[in-house]
Amino acid sequence: MMVTFKRKHWRLFSVGVLFALVELLSFLLSKRPLGSSRGYAVVGSIIEYVFFPEHAKTVQYWNAYEPVIEWTMAVIVGIVSGSMFSSVYSGEFKLSVVPQMWKTSKGPSVTKRLFWAFVGGMMVGFGSRLAMGCTLGMLISGVVQLAPAGFIFMMSLWMGGMLMTVLFYHVRTITLHRG
């Protein structure tokens, strides 16, 4: 058992099957599919309610997101702790700021990386609210339940990602060492 957790990687096929079992466990245990981006929206509503209480009451969108600690935030905390446990146990934990592939194509500057990480995060947050779900809550949970929403989201995500990769990185770099 412990030897399994010592290993750095598992086989990709078995990882996929285990992921499907986790999706099923979430249905059985909590009676809802996995999802994480709602938790970020609730954090945003908590911030607004704490710092600008008068303004937040006038925002129509926060009616659906009460500023209360809820399930998806627990999932996010669980993901952070689980990943930390796994990486520390197998000796993979390493503090880093600039990823290797970014260094090869955009340079080693830390501020540039953090700026673009924030801008990309803003786009991810805005897009996930517009589409009403992220990769976990919309793509995986939607496709698994045969909802058209998941399939549409999958295709448009792939289109947007490819387009932005060609425009932003100019795709000149091949990184031979894989993570």
Partner: peptide
Amino acid sequence: GGVLFGAGLAIAGYCPAIAAGALGEG
């Protein structure tokens, strides 16, 4: 929403669940 999400994913490199996992990895 998907196009915007994918564009942000290409720049930032982390989707909401993966970002939490990457933070746990350091």
